[in-house]
Amino acid sequence: MSGLLPEDVSLAVPDIALGLALLTAAGCALIPRSRLALAAGFLSLGALTALVWLRLDSVDVGLAEAGLGGGILGALLVWLAIRSPHSPAPDSAETISTTQPTSGTRRTSRPILNPRTLLGCAAGAVLGGGLCLVWFQVLHALPAWSEPLEEQMETTGVTHEITGVLLAFRAYDTLLESAVLMLAGVAVMALGRDGGLHQLSLPQPEVPSALRWLVRLCAPVLLLAGLWLLFAGSSDSGGAFQSGAVLCSLLILLRTAHALPSRERTEPWIRPLLIGGVVVFILAGLVGPLLADPLLSEAWLSWQPQWATAAVLSVEILLTIGIAVGLFLMYLTLENPEGVQ
Protein backbone atom coordinates (compact mmCIF):
# COMPACT_ATOMS: atom_id res chain seq x y z
CA MET A 1 0.00 0.00 0.00
CA SER A 2 2.80 2.36 0.87
CA GLY A 3 4.01 2.36 -2.71
CA LEU A 4 0.78 3.71 -3.97
CA LEU A 5 0.85 6.83 -1.82
CA PRO A 6 3.42 9.63 -2.45
CA GLU A 7 5.65 10.67 0.42
CA ASP A 8 4.06 14.04 0.74
CA VAL A 9 0.42 13.50 1.41
CA SER A 10 -0.45 17.10 0.67
CA LEU A 11 0.55 16.61 -2.92
CA ALA A 12 -2.10 13.96 -3.12
CA VAL A 13 -4.90 16.20 -1.98
CA PRO A 14 -5.93 17.40 -5.45
CA ASP A 15 -5.80 13.84 -6.68
CA ILE A 16 -7.97 12.67 -3.85
CA ALA A 17 -10.40 15.47 -4.52
CA LEU A 18 -10.46 14.55 -8.13
CA GLY A 19 -11.14 10.97 -7.24
CA LEU A 20 -13.94 11.93 -4.94
CA ALA A 21 -15.43 14.15 -7.61
CA LEU A 22 -15.19 11.29 -10.03
CA LEU A 23 -17.07 9.02 -7.67
CA THR A 24 -19.73 11.68 -7.11
CA ALA A 25 -20.12 12.15 -10.82
CA ALA A 26 -20.40 8.43 -11.29
CA GLY A 27 -23.10 8.40 -8.66
CA CYS A 28 -24.88 11.21 -10.43
CA ALA A 29 -24.68 9.26 -13.63
CA LEU A 30 -26.30 6.21 -12.10
CA ILE A 31 -28.67 7.17 -9.33
CA PRO A 32 -31.10 9.84 -10.60
CA ARG A 33 -34.27 8.76 -12.36
CA SER A 34 -34.48 11.63 -14.77
CA ARG A 35 -32.75 11.11 -18.05
CA LEU A 36 -31.57 14.66 -18.29
CA ALA A 37 -29.99 14.43 -14.88
CA LEU A 38 -28.37 11.20 -15.84
CA ALA A 39 -27.04 12.73 -19.01
CA ALA A 40 -25.65 15.66 -17.11
CA GLY A 41 -24.06 13.36 -14.61
CA PHE A 42 -22.44 11.37 -17.36
CA LEU A 43 -21.16 14.47 -19.09
CA SER A 44 -19.49 15.65 -15.95
CA LEU A 45 -18.08 12.18 -15.42
CA GLY A 46 -16.57 12.38 -18.87
CA ALA A 47 -15.05 15.73 -18.17
CA LEU A 48 -13.61 14.56 -14.89
CA THR A 49 -12.16 11.43 -16.47
CA ALA A 50 -10.42 13.56 -19.03
CA LEU A 51 -8.97 15.53 -16.16
CA VAL A 52 -7.76 12.35 -14.53
CA TRP A 53 -5.96 11.34 -17.71
CA LEU A 54 -4.39 14.78 -17.91
CA ARG A 55 -3.30 14.47 -14.32
CA LEU A 56 -1.66 11.21 -15.28
CA ASP A 57 0.25 13.05 -18.02
CA SER A 58 -1.54 11.21 -20.76
CA VAL A 59 -2.57 14.09 -22.94
CA ASP A 60 -3.51 11.95 -25.89
CA VAL A 61 -5.71 9.66 -23.87
CA GLY A 62 -7.20 12.64 -22.13
CA LEU A 63 -8.07 14.26 -25.41
CA ALA A 64 -9.49 11.09 -26.76
CA GLU A 65 -11.53 10.63 -23.62
CA ALA A 66 -12.81 14.15 -23.88
CA GLY A 67 -13.63 13.68 -27.51
CA LEU A 68 -15.23 10.31 -27.27
CA GLY A 69 -16.66 10.17 -23.78
CA GLY A 70 -17.59 13.78 -23.58
CA GLY A 71 -18.37 14.37 -27.19
CA ILE A 72 -20.08 11.45 -28.72
CA LEU A 73 -21.58 9.81 -25.70
CA GLY A 74 -22.67 13.17 -24.36
CA ALA A 75 -24.32 14.01 -27.59
CA LEU A 76 -26.06 10.66 -27.62
CA LEU A 77 -27.30 10.99 -24.13
CA VAL A 78 -28.58 14.48 -24.72
CA TRP A 79 -30.46 13.24 -27.71
CA LEU A 80 -31.97 10.45 -25.67
CA ALA A 81 -32.94 12.75 -22.92
CA ILE A 82 -34.71 14.99 -25.35
CA ARG A 83 -36.62 12.26 -27.03
CA SER A 84 -38.02 10.77 -23.85
CA PRO A 85 -37.28 12.71 -20.73
CA HIS A 86 -39.07 10.30 -18.42
CA SER A 87 -37.45 7.69 -16.27
CA PRO A 88 -35.98 4.77 -18.16
CA ALA A 89 -37.95 1.59 -18.46
CA PRO A 90 -36.12 -1.49 -17.29
CA ASP A 91 -35.67 -2.82 -20.77
CA SER A 92 -35.08 0.41 -22.58
CA ALA A 93 -31.41 -0.27 -22.77
CA GLU A 94 -32.12 -3.38 -24.66
CA THR A 95 -34.41 -1.55 -27.00
CA ILE A 96 -31.62 0.73 -27.90
CA SER A 97 -28.96 -1.83 -28.26
CA THR A 98 -30.83 -4.33 -30.35
CA THR A 99 -32.04 -3.53 -33.77
CA GLN A 100 -34.95 -5.88 -33.60
CA PRO A 101 -35.96 -7.33 -30.30
CA THR A 102 -37.47 -10.74 -30.55
CA SER A 103 -40.92 -11.06 -29.21
CA GLY A 104 -39.91 -13.98 -27.05
CA THR A 105 -37.49 -12.12 -24.85
CA ARG A 106 -39.75 -9.17 -24.40
CA ARG A 107 -41.88 -9.08 -21.31
CA THR A 108 -43.96 -6.38 -19.83
CA SER A 109 -42.22 -6.42 -16.48
CA ARG A 110 -39.24 -8.20 -15.23
CA PRO A 111 -37.71 -8.41 -11.76
CA ILE A 112 -34.59 -6.37 -11.53
CA LEU A 113 -32.61 -9.24 -10.12
CA ASN A 114 -33.23 -11.55 -13.02
CA PRO A 115 -31.01 -14.61 -12.73
CA ARG A 116 -29.91 -14.04 -16.27
CA THR A 117 -28.86 -10.52 -15.46
CA LEU A 118 -27.01 -11.74 -12.45
CA LEU A 119 -25.36 -14.42 -14.47
CA GLY A 120 -24.37 -11.92 -17.10
CA CYS A 121 -22.93 -9.58 -14.52
CA ALA A 122 -21.06 -12.34 -12.82
CA ALA A 123 -19.73 -13.56 -16.10
CA GLY A 124 -18.60 -10.13 -17.08
CA ALA A 125 -16.91 -9.68 -13.74
CA VAL A 126 -15.17 -13.01 -13.95
CA LEU A 127 -14.06 -12.37 -17.48
CA GLY A 128 -12.80 -8.91 -16.70
CA GLY A 129 -11.11 -10.04 -13.53
CA GLY A 130 -9.54 -12.96 -15.26
CA LEU A 131 -8.18 -10.85 -18.05
CA CYS A 132 -6.74 -8.33 -15.60
CA LEU A 133 -5.11 -11.12 -13.68
CA VAL A 134 -3.58 -12.48 -16.82
CA TRP A 135 -2.43 -9.11 -17.92
CA PHE A 136 -0.62 -8.48 -14.69
CA GLN A 137 0.90 -11.89 -14.68
CA VAL A 138 2.58 -11.60 -18.00
CA LEU A 139 3.26 -7.89 -18.25
CA HIS A 140 6.96 -7.54 -18.34
CA ALA A 141 8.49 -7.50 -21.78
CA LEU A 142 8.58 -4.17 -23.50
CA PRO A 143 8.00 -3.69 -27.16
CA ALA A 144 11.17 -4.25 -29.09
CA TRP A 145 10.61 -1.45 -31.46
CA SER A 146 11.61 1.59 -29.40
CA GLU A 147 15.03 1.84 -30.97
CA PRO A 148 14.20 1.34 -34.60
CA LEU A 149 11.26 3.65 -34.05
CA GLU A 150 13.48 6.55 -33.16
CA GLU A 151 15.89 5.74 -35.93
CA GLN A 152 13.31 5.70 -38.60
CA MET A 153 11.17 8.61 -37.48
CA GLU A 154 13.10 10.83 -39.89
CA THR A 155 11.64 9.22 -42.92
CA THR A 156 8.03 9.40 -41.92
CA GLY A 157 7.36 13.10 -42.40
CA VAL A 158 5.68 13.35 -39.02
CA THR A 159 7.20 14.07 -35.70
CA HIS A 160 5.01 12.39 -33.15
CA GLU A 161 5.76 8.78 -32.55
CA ILE A 162 2.22 7.56 -32.28
CA THR A 163 1.24 9.33 -35.45
CA GLY A 164 4.34 7.94 -37.04
CA VAL A 165 3.32 4.47 -36.07
CA LEU A 166 -0.20 5.07 -37.23
CA LEU A 167 0.51 6.65 -40.55
CA ALA A 168 3.91 5.40 -41.55
CA PHE A 169 5.12 2.25 -39.91
CA ARG A 170 1.72 0.71 -39.49
CA ALA A 171 -0.11 2.75 -42.08
CA TYR A 172 -1.48 -0.49 -43.44
CA ASP A 173 -3.28 -1.23 -40.20
CA THR A 174 -4.61 2.30 -40.09
CA LEU A 175 -5.83 1.96 -43.60
CA LEU A 176 -7.62 -1.26 -42.88
CA GLU A 177 -9.14 0.16 -39.72
CA SER A 178 -10.46 3.15 -41.52
CA ALA A 179 -11.76 0.79 -44.12
CA VAL A 180 -13.60 -1.00 -41.34
CA LEU A 181 -15.24 2.26 -40.34
CA MET A 182 -15.98 3.15 -43.92
CA LEU A 183 -17.55 -0.19 -44.56
CA ALA A 184 -19.56 0.11 -41.39
CA GLY A 185 -20.90 3.33 -42.87
CA VAL A 186 -21.54 1.57 -46.15
CA ALA A 187 -23.33 -1.20 -44.33
CA VAL A 188 -25.53 1.27 -42.57
CA MET A 189 -26.33 2.95 -45.82
CA ALA A 190 -27.16 -0.36 -47.40
CA LEU A 191 -29.36 -1.49 -44.56
CA GLY A 192 -31.06 1.75 -43.77
CA ARG A 193 -33.93 3.29 -45.63
CA ASP A 194 -33.02 5.91 -48.21
CA GLY A 195 -29.39 5.01 -48.06
CA GLY A 196 -29.32 5.40 -44.30
CA LEU A 197 -30.40 9.00 -44.42
CA HIS A 198 -34.06 8.42 -43.81
CA GLN A 199 -33.92 9.95 -40.35
CA LEU A 200 -32.90 13.25 -41.81
CA SER A 201 -36.21 13.59 -43.53
CA LEU A 202 -38.28 12.77 -40.48
CA PRO A 203 -39.82 15.48 -38.31
CA GLN A 204 -37.75 16.26 -35.25
CA PRO A 205 -39.02 16.53 -31.73
CA GLU A 206 -39.02 20.02 -30.32
CA VAL A 207 -36.06 20.94 -28.19
CA PRO A 208 -35.93 23.46 -25.42
CA SER A 209 -34.57 26.76 -26.63
CA ALA A 210 -31.97 26.72 -23.89
CA LEU A 211 -30.52 23.61 -25.32
CA ARG A 212 -30.50 25.02 -28.78
CA TRP A 213 -28.61 27.95 -27.43
CA LEU A 214 -26.16 25.67 -25.71
CA VAL A 215 -25.56 23.80 -28.91
CA ARG A 216 -24.84 26.96 -30.79
CA LEU A 217 -22.34 27.81 -28.19
CA CYS A 218 -20.72 24.41 -28.16
CA ALA A 219 -20.54 23.81 -31.85
CA PRO A 220 -17.65 26.11 -32.73
CA VAL A 221 -15.75 24.89 -29.74
CA LEU A 222 -16.15 21.31 -30.77
CA LEU A 223 -15.18 22.12 -34.33
CA LEU A 224 -12.07 23.83 -33.13
CA ALA A 225 -11.26 20.96 -30.83
CA GLY A 226 -11.67 18.54 -33.65
CA LEU A 227 -9.47 20.47 -36.01
CA TRP A 228 -6.88 20.89 -33.35
CA LEU A 229 -6.84 17.22 -32.66
CA LEU A 230 -6.39 16.60 -36.35
CA PHE A 231 -3.58 19.01 -36.96
CA ALA A 232 -1.89 18.33 -33.71
CA GLY A 233 -1.65 14.80 -34.91
CA SER A 234 1.46 15.40 -36.94
CA SER A 235 3.43 16.94 -34.15
CA ASP A 236 1.61 16.01 -31.00
CA SER A 237 -0.79 13.37 -29.85
CA GLY A 238 -4.11 13.37 -31.63
CA GLY A 239 -5.17 12.21 -35.04
CA ALA A 240 -7.84 11.29 -37.43
CA PHE A 241 -9.78 8.93 -35.20
CA GLN A 242 -10.13 11.28 -32.29
CA SER A 243 -10.80 14.19 -34.52
CA GLY A 244 -13.38 12.29 -36.48
CA ALA A 245 -15.14 11.29 -33.29
CA VAL A 246 -15.30 14.84 -32.09
CA LEU A 247 -16.57 16.06 -35.43
CA CYS A 248 -19.21 13.39 -35.37
CA SER A 249 -20.42 14.59 -32.01
CA LEU A 250 -20.56 18.04 -33.51
CA LEU A 251 -22.79 16.72 -36.24
CA ILE A 252 -25.03 15.01 -33.74
CA LEU A 253 -25.45 18.14 -31.73
CA LEU A 254 -26.18 20.09 -34.86
CA ARG A 255 -28.82 17.57 -35.78
CA THR A 256 -30.33 17.93 -32.35
CA ALA A 257 -30.59 21.58 -32.96
CA HIS A 258 -32.13 21.21 -36.38
CA ALA A 259 -29.12 22.78 -37.95
CA LEU A 260 -28.32 20.21 -40.57
CA PRO A 261 -29.33 20.40 -44.20
CA SER A 262 -32.17 18.25 -45.45
CA ARG A 263 -31.76 14.74 -46.79
CA GLU A 264 -31.90 15.81 -50.40
CA ARG A 265 -29.06 18.23 -49.88
CA THR A 266 -27.03 15.76 -47.87
CA GLU A 267 -27.26 12.79 -50.14
CA PRO A 268 -24.95 13.82 -52.99
CA TRP A 269 -21.96 14.62 -50.85
CA ILE A 270 -22.16 12.06 -48.11
CA ARG A 271 -20.84 9.11 -50.10
CA PRO A 272 -17.76 10.81 -51.54
CA LEU A 273 -16.96 12.14 -48.11
CA LEU A 274 -17.30 8.67 -46.63
CA ILE A 275 -14.93 6.98 -48.97
CA GLY A 276 -12.58 9.81 -49.82
CA GLY A 277 -10.12 9.03 -47.08
CA VAL A 278 -9.68 5.39 -47.92
CA VAL A 279 -9.44 5.99 -51.65
CA VAL A 280 -6.86 8.67 -51.30
CA PHE A 281 -4.96 6.61 -48.77
CA ILE A 282 -4.68 3.67 -51.14
CA LEU A 283 -3.89 5.86 -54.11
CA ALA A 284 -1.20 7.59 -52.09
CA GLY A 285 0.14 4.21 -51.16
CA LEU A 286 0.27 3.32 -54.82
CA VAL A 287 1.93 6.56 -55.82
CA GLY A 288 5.15 5.55 -54.11
CA PRO A 289 5.75 2.41 -56.12
CA LEU A 290 4.41 4.01 -59.29
CA LEU A 291 6.74 7.00 -59.11
CA ALA A 292 9.72 4.96 -58.05
CA ASP A 293 12.60 4.43 -60.37
CA PRO A 294 12.71 1.73 -61.57
CA LEU A 295 9.01 1.27 -61.57
CA LEU A 296 7.58 -0.54 -58.58
CA SER A 297 10.92 -0.78 -56.86
CA GLU A 298 9.37 0.74 -53.79
CA ALA A 299 6.96 -1.15 -51.61
CA TRP A 300 3.34 -0.33 -51.26
CA LEU A 301 2.46 2.56 -48.90
CA SER A 302 5.91 4.04 -48.99
CA TRP A 303 6.14 7.73 -49.53
CA GLN A 304 9.17 9.80 -50.37
CA PRO A 305 10.23 12.22 -47.63
CA GLN A 306 9.79 15.20 -49.95
CA TRP A 307 6.06 14.80 -50.20
CA ALA A 308 5.42 12.60 -47.26
CA THR A 309 4.06 15.36 -45.07
CA ALA A 310 1.68 16.55 -47.73
CA ALA A 311 0.47 13.06 -48.38
CA VAL A 312 0.04 12.23 -44.75
CA LEU A 313 -1.76 15.48 -44.10
CA SER A 314 -4.22 15.15 -46.93
CA VAL A 315 -4.85 11.52 -46.09
CA GLU A 316 -5.50 12.47 -42.52
CA ILE A 317 -7.90 15.24 -43.36
CA LEU A 318 -9.88 13.04 -45.63
CA LEU A 319 -9.82 10.15 -43.22
CA THR A 320 -11.11 12.42 -40.48
CA ILE A 321 -14.00 13.50 -42.60
CA GLY A 322 -14.72 9.95 -43.61
CA ILE A 323 -14.63 8.76 -40.05
CA ALA A 324 -16.89 11.56 -38.89
CA VAL A 325 -19.37 10.81 -41.64
CA GLY A 326 -19.25 7.10 -41.02
CA LEU A 327 -19.86 7.51 -37.33
CA PHE A 328 -22.64 9.95 -37.98
CA LEU A 329 -24.29 7.54 -40.37
CA MET A 330 -24.20 4.86 -37.77
CA TYR A 331 -25.65 7.23 -35.27
CA LEU A 332 -28.45 8.11 -37.63
CA THR A 333 -29.35 4.50 -38.08
CA LEU A 334 -29.26 3.64 -34.45
CA GLU A 335 -31.23 6.70 -33.56
CA ASN A 336 -34.47 5.03 -34.32
CA PRO A 337 -33.81 1.41 -35.15
CA GLU A 338 -37.46 0.65 -35.61
CA GLY A 339 -37.80 3.00 -38.49
CA VAL A 340 -34.74 2.30 -40.56
CA GLN A 341 -36.27 0.12 -43.17
Binding site: R116, L119, G120, A123, V126, L127, G130
Partner: peptide, 16 residues
Protein backbone atom coordinates in the same frame (compact mmCIF):
# COMPACT_ATOMS: atom_id res chain seq x y z
CA UNK B 1 -28.05 -16.21 -26.48
CA UNK B 2 -27.48 -16.79 -22.81
CA UNK B 3 -26.78 -20.47 -23.20
CA UNK B 4 -24.39 -19.84 -26.01
CA UNK B 5 -22.64 -17.25 -23.92
CA UNK B 6 -22.53 -19.58 -20.98
CA UNK B 7 -21.02 -22.30 -23.07
CA UNK B 8 -18.38 -19.91 -24.30
CA UNK B 9 -17.61 -18.91 -20.74
CA UNK B 10 -17.34 -22.51 -19.71
CA UNK B 11 -14.97 -23.24 -22.55
CA UNK B 12 -12.91 -20.25 -21.62
CA UNK B 13 -12.88 -21.24 -17.98
CA UNK B 14 -11.92 -24.76 -18.87
CA UNK B 15 -9.13 -23.50 -21.05
CA UNK B 16 -7.90 -21.25 -18.32
Amino acid sequence: WETSGLVLLMVLAATA
